[in-house]
């Protein structure tokens, strides 16, 4: 801070300092600019920006944004949740197989409770036993995947298919631009955004991630916070799983696996630090949109999946490097 202040007085690089603080404190603004740039590129390049296209982008971005929300919460405490993919897939799959016997509401409740239990185990491992979150959630994803496969073998005859309600919610678009999945997403997003900004729990997430020792000394019971965090994350992953199943109209035990790395990418691009203590959900939403627009841009240009992956990787590194530069102390 003080270094910047001194520099401002006599240094012609005043704008650089201003830019630095812009990136550091309000990453959403440059990100929105980047998003706008990408949309303009799309308009100039492969095809025209239409409301149907926008609807498609929003629809694809919603599940990614929810999963990236799980990562944001975990990353704020210096953790990461790699079990979201397995939990989301399993949730979509199990609801599709249960809905015939129990009805939809009961199936949803059962699945979300099961997801919550998986999250609880994650939380106990990370918060109480101090297992590295990466390992804990990785192990949990193996467990969930295995159990989902066992369930699949048991249920092979009764597999019903994605419930129509999910299909409407996941893939239908109102007035060609507003996807129905916003019905789910808006409350979830508000909950996370306000939860992080306005509630004690949200502030504790930042506090624990920023300086765990200071948080403990000021009376925060970090294991309880972490426990709740991973339960929330798992339940959100379950909800995202419903939307993904509805979006693709497929229920499979590996459905959401391809979302795991992009969800981390969206959070990183959105300015959430993997070291904890800095970031927020607003940036993450824009990050998810950016990734979705890039995907759409590349597929419209006819590039293969391979190029998308390479570009995603390059973008993550570049953005993370830029953040590290601008937010570096000293």
């Amino acid at each position: 801070m003080r270094a910047v202040g001194v520099a401002e007085d006599r240094n012609p690089w005043l704008t650089a300092a201003a830019w630095r603080s812009l990136f550091r404190d309000r990453p959403v603004i440059p990100l929105l600019a980047l998003l706008g740039l990408l949309v303009i590129l799309f308009e100039l390049g492969p095809s025209n920006v239409s409301s149907a296209w926008a609807g498609g982008v929003f629809r694809a971005a919603v599940p990614l944004a929810i999963l990236a929300g799980c990562q944001t919460l975990a990353m704020l405490t210096g953790g990461i949740d790699l079990s979201v993919g397995a939990i989301a897939s399993a949730s979509g799959f199990v609801v599709a197989t249960l809905v015939g016997t129990t009805g939809l509401p009961a199936a949803i409740v059962i699945v979300l409770v099961a997801a919550g239990v998986a999250g609880l185990v994650n939380g106990i491992g990370v918060g109480v036993f101090k297992v590295h979150p990466l390992i804990m959630t990785l192990g949990m994803s193996l467990v969930v995947l295995g159990l989902a496969n066992v369930w699949q073998v048991q249920r092979v005859q009764t597999g019903a298919g994605v419930p129509p309600a999910f299909r409407t919610l996941g893939s239908d678009v109102f007035l060609t631009v507003i996807p129905y999945s916003l019905i789910v997403f808006v409350p979830v997003a508000l909950l996370i955004l306000l939860g992080l900004r306005r509630t004690g729990f949200g502030r504790l997430l930042y506090a624990i991630g920023d300086n765990p020792i200071a948080a403990r000394l000021s009376g925060a019971r970090s294991w309880q916070v972490i426990l709740v965090l991973y339960v929330i994350s798992a339940v959100l992953a379950g909800i995202a799983g419903f939307l993904i199943a509805g979006l693709t109209n497929v229920a499979s035990v590996t459905l959401a696996d391809s979302y795991v790395l992009p969800s981390v990418a969206a959070a990183v691009i959105g300015g959430t630090s993997i070291m904890g203590g800095r970031g927020g959900f607003g940036g993450t939403i824009v990050g998810a949109l950016i990734l979705t627009v890039i995907t759409s841009l590349l597929s419209a240009l006819g590039y293969p999946e391979a190029v998308r992956q390479i570009l995603f990787g390059a973008i993550i590194v570049a953005v993370a490097a830029a953040y590290t530069r601008v937010t570096a102390e000293s």
Partner: peptide, 27 residues
């Protein structure tokens, strides 16, 4: 080199490079 030069945490860089290398493999 990317980790050392950018000072981004190892886990982020290698996660991103996992995308890059598997994309190259598909190419």
């Amino acid at each position: 080199a990317v980790i050392v030069v950018t000072r981004v945490p190892d886990i982020v860089v290698t996660l991103a490079m996992a995308f890059v290398w598997s994309g190259c493999a598909l190419l």
